[in-house]
Design a protein around this nucleic acid. Sequence first.
DNA 1: CAGTGGTCTAGACCACTGG
DNA 2: CAGTGGTCTAGACCACTGG
Lengths: 233, 233
Amino acid sequence: MTIPRFARIKEFIVGQIEQGFLLPGDQVPSENQLLEQFGVSRMTARRALQELSDEQILVRAQGLGTFVADARPMSSLLEIKNIADEIRARGHNYHCDLILLDAVTASAQQAMDLSLAEGSTVFRSVLLHCENGLPLQYEDRLVNPVLAPDYLHQDFLLQTPNAYLSEVAPLTEADHIVEAVCVEESIALALEIDSSQPCLKVSRRTCSKRGVVSFASLFYPGNRYRLGGHLNF
Amino acid sequence: MTIPRFARIKEFIVGQIEQGFLLPGDQVPSENQLLEQFGVSRMTARRALQELSDEQILVRAQGLGTFVADARPMSSLLEIKNIADEIRARGHNYHCDLILLDAVTASAQQAMDLSLAEGSTVFRSVLLHCENGLPLQYEDRLVNPVLAPDYLHQDFLLQTPNAYLSEVAPLTEADHIVEAVCVEESIALALEIDSSQPCLKVSRRTCSKRGVVSFASLFYPGNRYRLGGHLNF
DNA sequence: CAGTGGTCTAGACCACTGG
DNA sequence: CAGTGGTCTAGACCACTGG
């Protein structure tokens, strides 16, 4: 199986971006430059640039050139955002309390969430993420120990579980369920809300190439958080 | 401004699908057939099929042909689904109560939601969508009268506002906000829930080329509905 | 003006599928 | 085998942008 030439050109450009040689806004080689550089026809060079443009990695403008797109907007609703980055992006103070970090024996439900056998040992972390001292997200996470064996030895006050897991097991897929729920007393207490207050619950299962990495239950006080999204047709 | 040939071929095929001449699973003309039919080069015929395939309207298989894709999956999280279709797709009974349909004078908030001036006359509809007799969605919708002048004369027991508006003002954009809330007594009563029950609230602003068409506030009982989504990386 | 991307042609060779 | 889609070439003319 040989890699097509247009794909090689795409890889070359993506590589330049990932290695930091090309930054958002930078102009990438034109069709004519790629044509000479790779010894291909213009249609082939064009296809590489066009597909990267379709993938929103590049933007093209007639008469001007082709440029690296601004910070990957991910565009889809319910992006996988790092809660710490999100809070800091608002110019607010972020901090985090570690409530639990341990290995546990998976219940039937937990095993199913991670696609493992009941009774397997899995890792579990519970964290409370705060914005300007006010609890914003209660994160109860199960982790597949095979795919993140060093999970229990991380300092999650410095790096969120989400960020850590993205490093050790790059995400390929994610499923979400969004619900409005009442939370149990212990979670209400941690979130500093009355237990009658509605909360937004996001259940997220994330997968890498090697399988289900993690299953997170995220609880947000209904009066402090909303999910936004934008669609284009 | 002349329409490119590949775009004409795309329109032709999409038209055949929309008019029901081509059904999901049906084979569409091959590159060679389109080439003769439209008198274009193969690269041009190919581009039409390839782009429709990228848009998930067609699926292609080497050696086999090109086929109409199964029921548009829309793929994005929080797709704009027709609640009636969604309920019927589950094999359940759908029906709908009309609670209000009238012209109203826009409050400051309502005017902002529709990007109109305060005090403008706008249309408002309130409907209750039920699954097997049980209320599932309370829909409170504001409509821009300029973009849907006949809105008040529709029978929304036959066609949802969403479906009607999509016809008269094709959507180009949509914004969503998802929240967990408590609802006021009147809405709780309509939804047949206790007012202490958390609800999922989806606020959706939809736009066509000519501007903001509609602003809908959708309330779902937290224990009867959840939003799901899937992302690929 | 020279350079960019947008559209298009008329060919070519290939891998794949079904009969 | 004939037909399909996948890749690719070496040209062409065009609209658009900046200088």
